[in-house]
Nucleic acid binder design. Structure first.
Length: 425
RNA sequence: GGAGGCGUCGCCUAGUCCGGUCUAUGGCGCCCGCCUGCUAAGCGGGUUUGGGUCAACAGCCCAUCGCGGGUUCAAAUCCCGCCGCCUCCGCCA
């Protein structure tokens, strides 16, 4: 939810932000009107309630005739109060709904436009030139098969399309990546977390995944639970309804959890391999900090993401995602896209978002500052999404014979193995 | 899944049976002040959260006793539903 005060006092700023995302500002007018109705309803209720309270107080002392009269008057008043309260409740709910429909106000520096209007901030490393090396690179599906690392056929047999088994060195690779990521995070001062991947509607709603994005979310039949698409969800909700000690900020968490995505609407996209799957595991960074510090923290998260990708010797670029492609919660988003040799293009491996106060307003997460309590900022960033990282590593570091040379940093986590060798034809 | 208990403004706690005197008691912690070689103790005051009004983080008003609804002129207190925690039984990695 955006700041109601900003909406009230600077509606044009919110309108401009909507336009930047390429959205209509009708929701803004709606929320403004709802806000006005709500404030009136509250004032009305409070006046009547104060009156009723004052009268009611006289009753115990009153006697006989006087008491009867008082009872009658306050009975009538009480009905009014009840009606006013109902009106207030409705107005409040309508306002809430209208507010929830407004996406976060995009950052001033976020590029305007849609999916294709991103700005490349930097390019790190050079994509490997397989032509110069004289061999045709195998894709990760083929590499996964001959290394005995990824079993897509059985994934489909057991669970359906977009599922996989990681086996042997594939499983080992995931565990190594998890540990490398978790160790880096811990060394940087993050608190390590294993987070639940089933959450209640509040957590889902509060992080902005139940609106237009609801199509992509799995819901448990017959239970009020959802499977999370990222541990951003449980981690944001971790401190919901809490007032955090401002001097303890930033609170940094690195959470491991499985992630589940329906991938509705992406039929036909990335159908081959494990680039786009219904389930994968991920180590996610999540931070609670002050609004003022959020831009700087966002940059720090990006640096940690880059540090991790650097350890894997991957070629990648960093993009500044355009406003129209931000999703509901983010004010700004940077993606790190690694070069995938057999696709001849950069693909998103990690993504970091500054959600400013949007999520903490919905989840009621505040900080206690010297000058009062106010919402904090939340930020998230992928440290390592297993499947895509495995794809990038296998394809980037493959050799002509189908073996894969592991990046230095990973070797200690792989029992000292330097090269993954083919076990199948 | 079955049975029972519990949820009070940071923490602990009184109040709930029997509705109004609750403007929620007391202790601890914390903050401010006084006193004081220093510190401690002692003394006085303050200390939920949200909203409104206001020049004001002075005062005043409304809501808030896990959450939501109901009964009533009036609910921390009575009734119903939900959530959470605890104990026991069953099942189980």
């Amino acid at each position: 939810m955006i700041d109601p005060r900003i909406l009230r006092e600077q509606p044009d700023r919110v309108r401009a932000a909507q336009a930047k995302r390429g959205l209509s500002d009708a929701v803004v007018d709606e929320a403004l009107a709802a806000d006005e109705r709500r404030r009136q309803a509250i004032a009305d209720f409070e006046t009547r309630r104060a009156e009723q309270k004052a009268l009611s107080k006289q009753i115990p002392q009153a006697q006989g005739e006087e008491k009867q009269q008082l009872l009658e008057r306050t009975k009538a008043l009480s009905a009014e109060v009840k009606a006013a309260e109902a009106t207030q409740g409705e107005a409040e709910a309508a306002w809430q709904a209208a507010m929830m429909a407004i996406p976060n106000v995009a950052h001033d520096q976020a590029p305007a436009g849609g999916e294709d209007d991103f700005v490349v901030l930097e390019t790190i490393g050079t994509p490997r030139d397989f032509t110069a090396e004289g061999f045709e690179p195998r894709d990760h599906v083929e590499l996964g098969r001959i290394l005995g690392a990824i079993d897509i056929e059985r994934g489909a047999k057991v669970s359906g399309s977009r599922f996989y088994f990681l086996t042997g060195v594939g499983a080992q690779l995931e565990l190594a990546l998890v540990n490398l990521a978790m160790d880096q995070a811990r060394d940087a001062g993050f608190t390590q977390v294993i987070a639940p991947s089933l959450v209640r509607p509040r957590a889902m709603e509060g992080t902005g995944f139940l609106g237009q994005a609801a199509d992509d979310v799995y819901r448990i039949e017959g239970e009020d639970l959802y499977l999370v698409g990222t541990s951003e969800v449980p981690m944001a909700a971790y401190h919901s309804d809490e007032i955090l000690d401002a001097s303890a900020l930033p609170l940094r968490y690195a959470a491991f959890s499985p992630c589940f995505r329906k991938e509705a609407g992406s039929h036909g996209k990335d159908t081959r391999g494990i680039i786009r799957v219904h389930w994968f595991d991920k180590v996610e960074m999540f931070v609670f900090t002050t609004t003022e510090d959020s831009d700087a923290e966002h940059r720090r998260l990006l640096e940690w993401e880059k540090e991790f990708l650097d350890k894997l010797d991957l070629a990648y670029r960093v993009i500044d995602v355009a406003a129209g492609d931000l999703g509901l919660s983010a004010a700004r988003k940077f993606d790190c896209e690694a070069w995938i040799p057999t696709q001849g293009r950069y693909r998103e491996l990690t993504s970091t978002s500054n959600c400013t106060e949007f999520q903490s307003r919905r989840l009621d997460i505040r900080g206690r500052f010297p000058d009062g309590t106010r919402p904090v900022a939340t930020l998230n960033g992928t440290l390592c999404a297993m499947t895509r990282t495995i794809v990038a590593i296998l394809e980037t570091h493959q050799n002509a014979d189908g073996s894969v040379t592991l990046p230095q940093a990973l070797r200690p986590y792989m029992g000292g193995i330097e090269v993954l060798k083919p076990v199948h034809e």
